[in-house]
């Protein structure tokens, strides 16, 4: 069987707002403005911590989270989330999005009996997977109840300062 490594020639960073940045491999340490290339350097020192030096300016950076190919980066005080995709995984995304069936509804339920402390979303709010939607006090602790999907909040049954039983529906989310 063929044994050579499949060469990945390009990578794409897709922002959460669906902007696409493509980079050829091997990755160059320059970013182009107009026709000129400017060097990008990652540096770190005692005074500034880690930063990127570009066009004679320092930009603070922090890697907030990374899981799989997903990176949350705080860059110059603004957080960005990127999915880094290979040409194949990008194609796969296109293929699968065509196959995607009807939109489903996800019910966020109370995982245990307790008291609703706060509802963090409103009807019509966009929520991301992992985003807290309700704060439930149970076992004398405040628990963040998170959305398990990306979607749109369509209805809210949780009311602050009310008690709920296990599996009571708190929030309904239309999966997107």
């Amino acid at each position: 069987m063929p044994n050579e490594k499949p060469q990945i020639k390009k990578l794409y960073a897709l922002s959460s707002e669906n902007r696409k940045f493509s980079f050829s491999l091997p990755l160059k340490h320059t970013i182009k403005v107009g026709k000129r290339n400017y060097d990008v350097q990652i540096k770190s020192d005692e005074k500034y911590g880690t930063y990127i030096l570009w066009k004679n300016r320092r930009y603070p950076l922090e890697i907030v989270k990374s899981s799989q190919n997903k990176y949350e980066i705080l860059f110059n005080d603004i957080s960005y989330t990127f999915n880094v995709e290979t040409p194949f995984s990008l194609q796969r995304m296109k293929v699968l999005s065509k196959h995607k069936g009807k939109q489903e509804k996800e019910l966020v339920k109370a995982p245990m009996p307790g008291k609703i402390i706060d509802v963090l979303v409103r009807e019509g709010s966009q929520v991301l997977k992992g985003e807290p939607v309700v704060i439930l006090e149970a076992m004398k602790m405040q628990n963040e109840i998170q959305s398990t999907v990306n979607g749109l909040v369509t209805s809210i049954s949780a009311r602050p300062n009310t008690n709920v039983m296990k599996d009571d529906i708190l929030v309904e989310i239309k999966v997107e």
């Binding site: 990578l11 980079f23 970013i31 990008v40 930009y59 860059f75 960005y80």
Partner: peptide, 13 residues
Amino acid sequence: EEMLAAWLATKLF
């Protein structure tokens, strides 16, 4: 700036 951040994500990947 976003491009620099995207570059960084790609580099990490």
